[in-house]
Amino acid sequence: MDDIQPTTDAGQAYGSAAHAGALAPGAAAPIASRPTGLAMKRRGPVAVWLGLPLITLGIYQLVWYYKIHKELQEFDRRRVLSPAGSVLVMIFLSWTLIAPLISYHNTGKAIANAQRAAGLPVTCSPAASTWLAFVFGLNIWYMQRQLNLVADAYPSATPGTEVLLAA
């Protein structure tokens, strides 16, 4: 019987460059592709905050809340958001007062993450997104203004077209 000796070749060991699919010497390294997302829609902050909710007796605010969460999800697919869950919190748990405030805070964080992904300085404050709800519901106006900064970062992109993310 032949004795089989284990090889000590570094190219055969697990976790080595050869096992991980490294390139041959002299081959060009692959270029890491930048993440992409779908461009967001620019909306009028005053129309979103005051005009359309008055005309639709508050229904538009729920539609808007769903749409921005869906756009945030599509803009940066690395982040997981639940557009329907956010709206359901507003519909069924708004009486608790705490649940909508937490939802506004999380939306402010999602907008800040979108600004970061667009390569913009982060100007959206989750705290302002929360506490401006107590001042005539100005948090809606504030959040839409912050979202418009993300939309304006891609001036030639129409809503729903693919854009490159900066980070």
Rank of each mutant, 00 (worst) to 15 (best):
P35H: 14
A167I: 08
I111W: 01
P159T: 10
F136A: 14
T123Y: 04
P53K: 08
R79A: 04
I68W: 01
G21I: 09
G37K: 02
V87C: 06
L81M: 10
L132A: 12
N106K: 14
V63D: 03
A29W: 04
A127I: 11
P45D: 03
S125E: 09
A117D: 04
I102S: 09
A47I: 02
V122Q: 15
Q146F: 02
I59C: 13
T130Y: 03
E74L: 11
A157E: 04
L138G: 06
V89M: 12
G26K: 11
Q144S: 05
K70Q: 11
L101R: 06
T123K: 08
L23D: 14
G21K: 09
L101Q: 08
M40F: 08
G137M: 05
L165M: 10
I59Y: 11
Q115L: 09
D9L: 08
A112P: 00
A112E: 04
I68R: 00
R34H: 08
P100F: 14
N139P: 15
M1T: 10
S103M: 13
V87Y: 00
S156P: 02
T123S: 07
F136P: 07
A128N: 04
T123V: 06
Y60C: 08
Y142T: 05
W131K: 04
T123W: 03
A99N: 09
A22E: 07
A110G: 03
S103Q: 15
Q144V: 08
L97F: 14
S103K: 12
F92C: 11
A10H: 06
F134C: 15
I140S: 02
K70C: 04
A27Y: 07
L147E: 00
D152V: 03
S94N: 13
A127M: 06
S103T: 07
H69S: 01
S129H: 01
P45W: 03
A157R: 02
V163Y: 02
R145N: 14
M143A: 13
A166S: 12
P45V: 05
D2F: 04
V150Q: 06
V122T: 15
Y65K: 03
Q5S: 13
A20M: 12
A27L: 07
F75L: 11
V46D: 03
L164V: 06
T36M: 05
S16W: 04
L101F: 11
